[in-house]
Amino acid sequence: MSVLVFVEGVDGEIKKSSFEAISYAAELAKKKNTHAVAVVIGAYPADALESLGKYGASKVLNINNDKLKQPVIQPYATAIAEAANKETADVIILSKSSIGEAVASRLAVKLKAAVVSNVIELPDLSGGFKVKKSLYTGKAFANIELKADKKVLTIAKNACSVTETGGKATVESFAPSIPDTDFSTAIKEVSKATGDILLTEADIVVSGGRGLKGPENWHLVTDLAKALGAATGCSKPVSDLDWRPHHEHVGQTGIKVSPNLYIAIGISGAIQHLAGVNSSKCIVVINKDPEAPFFKAADYGIAGDAFEVVPKLIAAAKNYK
């Protein structure tokens, strides 16, 4: 038995969310008296793979196959299922991400496993295998028992803190056999903002709303984000008006974020927006209208004009980061 964890990389670097996933798998393995095995698809330097031991993986399976350079759902699911069988893993951990979630569902069917997504803390193993998951877009939680022998979990950001123990993992290369029929999806083009901090990975998010009056004022959001090392987001009206791209829309029908710190500027706080941010650890609201509903969901508030307040914050931020 073992706990298998799928590790994701982006542009040749292991994603931060995957360090969390490894720590989660290692903590769970400890509880189960077994070990955690990380599966990494793609070419990485040997020391980068060995260093995953630091987060608690005792072994790394590296799948290096040219056909898997891009994250395509079906062959990835097959590869991870084969890795799980090879390592006799009874629990498989994935991050909640655009690839993790898409793979988890197919993987669960392949392995005849019980699957729960959006898990927010370590499983409770006292009498069965129980997890807590977020639902109703963060407005509630459910305690769910997984009843099959094998279990697949996708974990939300901050489900586990990253712990560095300092070990070194043994690296083994692994070549799963993947049928040609799995390669029916062709990725033709990838376009993404480069150099920016990813919204879903960020520890701090600064978002702007219609209170900023127009895209020409967005420097207030981006400058504050830059000063704090934060990612930038926006409310739904802002993305609907095309002031900002859709992948920055935070809310019920956009991206759900759970950073340590969420700063909302000129967003009134419609319930649909709150749904996307309410699992943030600390929420700061800056709004001209002291009656804005967002203040009720905030930890800290500044009732003031963003055009006066935010430049002062940008100037001051440098001393605190």
Partner: peptide, 27 residues
Amino acid sequence: TTSLNSYELPAPKGACKMIDASTPEKL
């Protein structure tokens, strides 16, 4: 394969601490 045993609501938020707009750096 799974059973939902119970639901929970998030713990209620404490009051929002207001920071004076003339000294936002106190945030």
